[in-house]
Every structure is written in structure tokens, then in C-alpha cells.
């Protein structure tokens, strides 16, 4: 077989893994949309904020140091200690849970029974607030994120497959992408198990099906919202870690939400497996298109191709591959 054949396999494998990285971001959107019908515009910023918080805690950074220094004339920067990664992740998760409480208490509670567009606009405001708040709290410099995950091409795989064809240098798979895939599988399995086999999970699904009916049987909408936003915060933290490890923790992390949109359009806004499958289709589709067609039309096709692919699916399945069909009786 020719080197081109193996390189095509390589592109597909890398596309699948990149797609899983997109799915990690899309999952947060799905969780919140499923439970409350809200498209959370702030999901990308949540990933950024979670990653900033993790690095800040890990490196012993004093929160709001710049603000404190300006007001009190101090020279605070670091506490002088470093927090082990696992504990830092737990603390960052607690911050995201605290954030969920604040969002429910100060935003969602006041918008009960409002149109989805109002809630969507509230999340836009939340995104802008968090961007500024994150900068104020942790500073806007680019931070290196190291949680101990290996990064770089897998040397063993590369050397074991090198020479399978003339001009083939061996398969390239990024160790970090492989870890991200494994983590995403565990995450999705956990979320599905939580949703199907726990009382809280069933309550969550009940709210998603019909919040009025759920309320009438004693399910607290406010508690469910806190749980859902906490879960979305957890997913944002995982996405922030994976993407932050690739690019450093910087403002642009918030823009990864743009890569999640075609995934959601394709997989459906209400399906957890849909987010994963949608991500993988987008990942493979855009990488293969760039590999096969890109060179003939100037390259840089991935961003728009993802949306074109999603739009094509929308023509045939407006609810996405796994989304629930919305039937409104008149």
C-alpha cells in the first residue's frame, strides 16, 4: 500500500481525536441546553475561567493581586507555595460549583419563565462579565498549564509503523489527544450513567422533558439548575485543561466555543452521545477535506467546512443526528 493510503488513515485518526476535543466543549452546551433550554453563550469563557483558576491555584497566585496592589500600594504576586495538581483540580472544581450557585442566585432565579432568548442574552452578558472578571482575578498574561499529561507525538507508534510504505514516516498521534479521548470516553460514560441511574440524574431528565411537570412532583428547579451548571463547569474545566495544555491558558481559549457550534448543529443540542459523534464527524470531515481538497483551493478550509457540513446535515435532520424532534401542536 502507498504512503498516501497510510497518511489518509493518519489524517482520519487525528481527525477523530481532534473531534473529541471539540466534543469536550460541546458537552457543556448540551448539559445546560438539555436541562433548561438555554444556549449558554458563556460556555467557552467558562472553560477559560476554569483553566485560569486551575493554573492560578496550582502556581499559588494571589487572586486580584494587581487590583490589590493598585489600591493598597502592595507588591503581591504569589503566595510562595505550589499546590499539587490533583488538589488544584479539586479546588478549581469547587470554584466552578461556587460559580454555579452565583449564576443561579443572581441570574437564573430572576429569569424564571422568561423566553429562551432572554436567558440566552443573559449568558452573553455573563460571558463578557467573566472575561473581565477572569483577567482581573488572575491577570491576562499567557500561562503554561501542566497537569502532568504527556504531550507530543507518540514515539513508539511512530517508530513501530515507520517504513510501512516508501516515504511513510510512521503514524503520528499526539499523546495528549489520546489522553483527551480516553478522558472524554470516561466523562461521557459517567454523565450517561449519572443521567440514567441516579435519582438526581432522573430528576434532571424530568426537568429537561417538562419543567412544569417536574415542579409539580416536587423537583426543585433551582437545585437542578445549580447541579447542571456545576456539571457544565466541570466539563468546562476538563475542556480548559485539554485545550489549555495545547495552547497555554490565554483569552483565545474562550473562542473554542466556535468549534463546538457545528458539532452541536450536527449532533443535536440535547444528546450527550450526539456531542461525541458530532464532534468526531466534524473532526474527521474537516481534516479529510483539508487533506484532500484543501491544497487545490488555497487551504484553511477547516473553519468553514465544519459549518458547511453541519448545514448539510441540518437540511435533512434539523434536530441534528441525535436531537429530539420538536413537535409543536397548534
Amino acid at each position: 500500500m502507498s504512503a498516501n493510503f497510510f497518511y489518509t488513515i493518519e489524517v482520519i485518526a487525528n481527525g477523530l481525536m481532534t473531534g473529541v476535543m471539540y466534543s469536550l466543549v460541546a458537552l457543556g452546551f448540551v448539559l445546560i441546553f438539555k436541562a433548561s433550554g438555554v444556549f449558554n453563550y458563556a460556555q467557552g469563557v467558562m472553560a477559560l475561567f476554569a483553566a485560569m483558576t486551575l493554573v492560578g491555584i496550582q502556581s499559588g497566585q494571589v487572586p486580584f493581586a494587581h487590583l490589590i496592589n493598585v489600591i493598597f500600594g502592595t507588591h503581591l504576586d504569589k503566595f510562595g507555595w505550589e499546590v499539587p495538581t490533583f488538589i488544584a483540580i479539586i479546588l478549581a472544581l469547587l470554584v466552578m460549583i461556587g460559580f454555579a450557585f452565583i449564576v443561579e442566585r443572581y441570574i437564573l432565579k430572576h429569569l424564571v419563565n422568561q423566553d429562551p432568548i432572554i436567558l440566552f442574552m443573559a449568558t452573553i452578558g455573563l460571558a463578557y462579565f467573566m472575561e473581565g472578571f477572569g483577567d482581573l482575578m488572575w491577570g491576562s498574561e499567557i500561562k503554561k498549564l501542566d497537569v502532568g499529561l504527556p504531550q507530543g507525538g507518540n514515539v513508539w507508534l511512530e517508530s513501530a509503523t515507520a517504513g510501512w510504505a516508501d516515504g511513510f514516516y510512521g503514524f503520528y498521534l499526539d499523546n495528549l489527544d489520546m489522553w483527551a479521548t480516553a478522558i472524554a470516553i470516561v466523562l461521557v460514560a459517567s454523565l450517561i450513567a449519572f443521567s440514567n441511574y441516579t435519582k438526581t440524574g432522573r430528576a434532571l431528565r424530568a426537568v429537561a422533558d417538562d419543567n412544569q411537570a417536574a415542579l409539580s412532583v416536587g423537583i426543585s428547579l433551582r437545585t437542578i439548575w445549580v447541579i447542571v451548571w456545576s456539571l457544565a463547569g466541570f466539563v468546562a474545566l476538563v475542556a480548559g485543561i485539554m485545550w489549555g495544555a495545547k495552547s497555554g491558558v490565554q483569552f483565545s481559549l474562550s473562542l473554542i466555543a466556535l468549534k463546538a457550534l457545528p458539532v452541536l448543529m450536527l449532533g443535536g443540542f440535547t444528546s450527550i452521545p450526539g456531542a461525541i459523534v458530532g464532534g468526531m464527524i466534524i473532526g474527521v470531515g474537516e481534516k479529510l477535506f483539508e487533506f484532500a481538497i484543501g491544497p487545490y483551493i488555497g487551504g484553511a478550509t477547516e473553519n468553514w467546512f465544519a459549518y458547511v457540513l453541519a448545514l448539510l446535515f441540518l437540511v435533512f435532520r434539523p434536530q441534528g443526528l441525535f436531537g429530539e424532534k420538536i413537535i409543536e401542536r397548534v
Binding site: 483565545s252 473562542l255 487551504g299
Partner: peptide, 23 residues
């Protein structure tokens, strides 16, 4: 050879796989 990267450039796997292939 030209390797364009779309804004913001968070994902560049295709470009660098191509560089790896073309050396």
C-alpha cells in the same frame, strides 16, 4: 509552500501533519 491557518489558530493539526509529511 504555503500553509494558511484560520483565525484564531487554536487548531493547526492539518497544517503540521502536512509539514511532517513534506519535511
Amino acid at each position: 509552500t504555503l500553509q494558511p491557518v484560520d483565525h484564531p489558530g487554536q487548531e493547526q493539526k492539518s497544517q503540521w501533519l502536512q509539514i511532517r509529511r513534506e519535511r
